[in-house]
């Protein structure tokens, strides 16, 4: 293990293994990026081209003026992800406050139901939800998708928010209470400024769960103009992107940008919440 003195041979082996780990983790992503800038001719040249011989932007340009309404998918993805994000933040802050600061009958089972809810098999939900949505007129709507995405994001969001509020000393709200603040006042004036990072983390998590979800829109959005990016691109694999790897990789990069930006923005909080949630319960 590094951090203490290593013999030269061990140092070389250690460095080689680290490089190997990096290659395993990053090569597929590198290959995606390189392919997106290659001409179709080069992609099918049957030789290993680690860099595009003739770099081109045509794969990206084609993305937005093809038969596949990528623009519509993209807009639907943004709307449903933002909607899921806002709903999740709202209900998680309120429920997180109740779980963290109040004591009431049945609290333990209710908290545990949030943990169990995180492990729910989505696939089992789509069958009843499909029939419910059919009757309620929610198929092919963004509102229907937002509700479905919340079934994944809310249990995690509430749990995370409870842990986050637990980390704010209770003396602060007691002091505010003596100054005449009610519970909602405490949430607004004392907690909101302090749990800002937690709210961002929950928001980003909810956004990404919605953004990355394939199952729900695949089942609930039958009309092309109601699809989000994942099912839209997937269905295009069999038509537009058939044998068009450059186009598919360009679309993949488009779909990866929000997750990567979001993760870099909040990685500190996500990592902390993930480990403390798992280790401390």
């Amino acid at each position: 293990m590094p951090g203490r003195r290593l013999s030269p041979l061990r140092r070389v082996i250690h460095t080689a293994l680290v490089l190997l780990a990096l290659a395993w983790s990053l090569f597929p992503l590198y290959w995606m990026a390189v392919t997106a800038f290659k001409r179709n001719l080069d992609i099918f040249s049957f030789e290993l081209q680690l860099l595009p011989t003739t770099p081109t932007f045509e794969n990206f340009a084609n993305l937005f003026d093809s038969d596949v309404p990528v623009r519509t998918y993209f807009i639907n993805s943004v709307i449903t992800a933002l909607g899921t994000c806002l709903v999740t933040i709202f209900v998680s802050v309120l429920a997180g406050y109740a779980f963290s600061r109040l004591r009431f009958r049945g609290q333990r089972p209710l908290e545990m139901s949030m943990l169990v809810g995180q492990m729910f098999p989505l696939l089992v939900l789509i069958i009843p939800l499909y029939l419910i949505y059919l009757r309620a007129g929610l198929l092919n709507t963004n509102a229907g998708l937002i509700l479905a995405f919340c079934s994944i994001a809310v249990p995690v969001g509430v749990w995370f928010m409870k842990n986050f509020i637990d980390s704010v000393p209770r003396e602060l709200d007691e002091a505010a209470r003596i100054d005449g603040c009610g519970d909602l006042g405490i949430i607004r004036h004392i907690l909101l400024p302090l749990i800002g990072p937690g709210i961002v983390a929950v928001g980003v998590f909810a956004f990404l769960e919605a953004w990355n979800n394939l199952v729900f829109p695949l089942a609930f959005s039958t009309r092309p103009d109601a699809r989000t990016l994942p099912p839209g691109l997937l269905l295009a694999v069999d038509s537009q992107f058939r044998q068009d790897w450059g186009g598919l990789m360009a679309a993949s990069i488009l779909a990866s940008i929000p997750p990567i930006v979001g993760f870099i923005a909040v990685q500190r909080w996500i990592l902390r919440g993930l480990t403390s949630g798992a280790l401390k319960g």
Binding site: A21, L22, S25, L26, P28, L29, W31, M32, T35, L208, W211, N212, L214, L229, P230, L233, L234, V237, W245, L248, M249, A251, S252, A255, S256, P259, I260, F263, Q267
Partner: peptide, 18 residues
């Protein structure tokens, strides 16, 4: 090394399909 974890599942699928 965390990059593969951040990659959306559908993109992982496309990538390995390719």
């Amino acid at each position: 090394l965390l990059a593969p974890w951040v990659t959306p599942a559908i993109v992982v699928g496309f990538l390995f399909l390719y």
